[in-house]
């Protein structure tokens, strides 16, 4: 079992997905890196404002969102594994599971946004919230795009559009979701936790 599982996965020295997707992710990660650095540097300049404003965010909501994203990542990775073993129907079901987990994040994030707006903590409230909205908003848009991709992959998977030999598109789409996760795990402590 173990050896067959290994052989069905990506061969050693092989880059999963499309090379173009990797370059695209590199570009995305650079943009996010700049945003994150801008946030950190501004925090260093205005530490008091940042720690005061951070108290207005709910860390446990942040944690729940993290778990939603990571679980979606797990399901997406498991789906890919099922397709590699030529079980596309199970793969499709898992992709739908990923979509469901991701929507947990979306619901939580939207309620957080609504709560903040209702308290008058919008884009123009202070520099912390300006950067909070730019950074998390940009990430939120990526989550939405990632969900569109996951949904499209699930549909194509259900119709048998992917199999063990033809799966580069699936790999690329799943990779994109992992990148969204990757950004979040750095973004979450910086925005919600670090003082």
């Amino acid at each position: 079992m173990s050896t067959s599982a290994e052989s069905a996965a990506a061969a050693p020295g092989h880059l999963p997905g499309d090379l173009a997707m990797w370059f695209f992710m590199l570009a995305e990660l650079s943009v996010f890196a700049l945003l994150i650095l801008a946030f950190a540097v501004t925090q260093a300049i205005k530490p008091q404002m940042f720690s005061d404003s951070r108290l207005l965010l709910d860390t446990s909501t942040g944690l729940a969102m993290t778990l939603g994203l990571l679980t979606a990542g797990l399901f997406a990775a498991l789906a890919l594994e099922q397709v590699r073993h030529s079980r596309p129907r199970r793969g499709a079901a898992l992709l739908l599971g990923a979509l469901l987990a991701a929507s947990v994040y979306v619901v939580l994030k939207l309620s957080e946004y609504r709560h903040l707006l209702a308290s008058g903590l919008g884009l123009e409230h202070n520099t912390f919230f300006t950067l909070y909205w730019i950074l998390t908003g940009f990430h939120f848009l990526h989550v939405l795009l990632g969900m569109v991709i996951l949904g499209w992959l699930a549909e194509r998977c259900r119709r048998g559009g992917f199999d063990a030999d033809k799966r580069s598109g699936l790999e690329s789409g799943v990779l994109y979701w992992h990148m969204v996760d990757l950004v979040w795990v750095v973004l979450f402590p910086l925005v919600y936790v670090l003082d």
Binding site: A27, S30, V31, L34, L35, A38, L123, E124, T130, L131, W133, I134
Partner: peptide
């Protein structure tokens, strides 16, 4: 807010 958005994204 555009000071931030403009500076960061056009750096790329």
């Amino acid at each position: 807010v555009w000071l931030w958005v403009g500076s960061i994204f056009s750096a790329m």
